[in-house]
């Protein structure tokens, strides 16, 4: 029994020693496996992106990435886990928008604010598209506008919460009123659209593209802030074309807010190389997705802008 206790103590001691040497060697970052926290379940969109990125980590980041899914409470558990770990750059969180939404909606009990993170990279802009069945009065932006002016609130738009922000914001700027119904998943909303139970839906472009190709649906509006680089999308008006400010959901990575600057800069550059690597690019192309790389200064600017805009829209729309 005693020997067991002694050996446990020894192991504990060794463990702490290792952590200390890790901190001392910060300038040699990275010298061990990087833990990537995905605050969502395995198999989701962000998880798919992150796992695809991790396949090119060794060559470009210098160390392998090990992806850990920590879902729960709209992504808040994963974010908190990242904050609880040391600010040494060995834990990176890779996520989307929902765990920014959660602490805004529930500010009284949330364990963090959206500002408590050091954004290091944005790797994807998603420009959700407003789609409708073809040959309806509201199948073009002009038609939609006229229809809603005459019948305020009499069109039902089905969407998941995150991707709906852009359209909500544009409609609000245009002074239009629609019946927005929040679904659990985009898939459910589209089934209802195709079945004629709702009038419009807001999927991400990769989901919309095959439906547009087959002629089952037409795109009314690109509610995002960037152009969509896919065939069939050239003629779709974007929020900016119409004179409104759109909103794109971003997929991004962040570190502990106290992480040293050199590490953040290294991470941003290295992730850029990973995104640019041909094998990752071709992987994403086959999925119909488009990765981007954004320099560090812009990352922070965009992140702060998105967080602010999100706060504004969420406070304005009455859920």
């Amino acid at each position: 029994m005693k020997r067991l206790t002694v050996s446990i103590l020894l192991i504990l001691l060794l463990g702490t020693l290792f952590t200390f040497t890790g901190a001392v060697l910060a300038e040699e970052y990275p010298d061990k496996t990087i833990q990537i926290v995905v605050p969502w379940g395995a198999g989701g969109g962000t998880d798919k992106w992150t796992r695809a990125l991790s396949t090119v980590a060794i060559e470009n980041y210098g160390q392998p990435w090990s992806v850990v899914n920590i879902p729960g409470s709209s992504g808040m558990v994963g974010w908190k886990e990242m904050l609880d770990r040391p600010a040494d750059g060995y834990t990176i969180m890779s996520t989307g928008m929902s765990n920014i939404i959660a602490p805004i909606m529930d500010s009284s009990s949330a364990p963090y604010t959206p500002e408590e993170v050091r954004p290091v990279a944005i790797y994807n802009f998603q420009n959700p598209v407003l789609i409708a069945l073809p040959d309806k009065e509201w199948s073009t932006w002009e038609g939609l506008k006229n229809y809603l002016t005459e019948n305020p609130g009499r069109l039902t738009i089905g969407s998941a919460l995150g991707v709906s922000i852009g359209t909500t914001s544009v409609l609000e700027q245009a002074g239009l009123e629609a019946n927005l119904v929040i679904y659990d998943s985009t898939g459910e909303a589209i089934t209802d659209l195709l079945g004629g139970h709702i009038d419009l839906a807001i999927p991400p472009p990769a989901v919309a593209a095959p439906l547009m190709e087959s002629g089952d649906a037409v795109a009314v509006l690109n509610s995002g802030i960037r152009d969509i680089d896919l065939p069939k999308f050239e003629d779709v008006p974007s929020a900016a074309d119409l004179g409104y400010t759109g909103f794109s959901t971003i997929r991004w990575m962040g570190m502990h807010p106290d992480t040293p600057d050199e590490i953040v800069q290294y991470a941003n550059k290295a992730i850029g190389e990973m995104i640019e690597s041909p094998s990752f690019q071709s992987m994403m192309k086959s999925m119909g997705e488009k990765p981007v790389w954004v320099p560090l200064e812009e990352v922070e600017e965009i992140y702060n802008h998105q967080a602010k805009e999100l706060r504004r829209v969420l406070e304005n729309i009455d859920l």
Binding site: G72, S73, S74, M105, S108, S109, I182
Partner: peptide
């Protein structure tokens, strides 16, 4: 957990990790 429409946490006793309800 959260009300599915208004997203207000219900019956969570102000524990943030119950926001999505009991898994």
């Amino acid at each position: 957990g959260s009300d599915p429409v208004s997203l207000v946490p219900r019956l969570t006793f102000n524990l943030w990790w119950l926001r999505d309800g009991i898994p």
